[in-house]
Amino acid sequence: MTLGGIDLVALAAMLMVASTPILLAAIGELIAEKAGVLNLGVEGMMIMGAIGAFAGAVITGSPAAGFAFGALAGAGMALIFGFLTQVLLSNQVATGLALTLFGLGLSALFGKGFEGVRPPATEKLDFGALADLPVLGPVLFRHDWVVYFSLAMVVAVWLFLHFSRSGLILRAVGENHEAAHALGYRVVAVRMAALAFGGALAGMGGAYLSLVRVPQWTEGMTAGAGWIALAIVVFASWRVERVLLGAYLFGGVTVLQLRLQAAGYAIPVQLLSMAPYVITIIVLVIISARHRHGAQAAPAALGKTFHASR
């Protein structure tokens, strides 16, 4: 199926690969922010996930173990952030920025021995006959497991936030930590758990970059993907289904503009180049504006410091 010389099926398949790192990081950040913590260290957690996964996969020879290491590295970074902001009550914005700087530097240090090394390949899942379906096969059934994992996480997080008691507690903590505390919920514990989850997903997003999408380790290789994930959470007004839309839109337009260039379309390259940012923001802002009903979209306690003595 081609349109204007571009194979739409191949494009859709590329889109899913290009979007997965941002999607994973954005879902993780969504949970952290829903619990009321603003963690600007996504970039730092992603890059630590990228090197952690790369090192883990190269040393053990197993990409799955690599992803586990990546998740652990991301979660570890998030717990440092959690300790500083939740226990020592440091400023979240400053600590988050510091976490990004720390992650970029530390990953460069750890990564010195891994430049130019090839990671073991992450195999595509085998769906048998399903993979041979026209159109649907290449788009849906010829990916590695992480793509499906990221989509499953979207569903799981949506169910968790809307239909589970713990999801309700998490949101309560994020909306009004004083009230949640008064009801007997352990605000700091909930937030630490949310942060660790967010860090693990950001780490897996970074891992996907270094193990699948690029695949190799290069210093600073996230190149701002963490900031995109942060922005998508805000523009998606903290709704997981919109995060999915935003991440796929961003990844999709990024891939599409490169394909349009390669195909030699006479569209100004500057326009194509800024299209992913502009289109993603416009679409998400329009959706958010239409559904707001006057309510504030951001969790009310987002970024506020909680201390139990008050």
Binding site: A18, T254, A262
Partner: peptide, 25 residues
Amino acid sequence: MKVVWAYSWFDPAKEADAATALIAE
């Protein structure tokens, strides 16, 4: 000659995507 502009000197993910787009072409 097929040309793709990355509008970046250093962005491994984007460079990889650009390479993939050219290979698809």
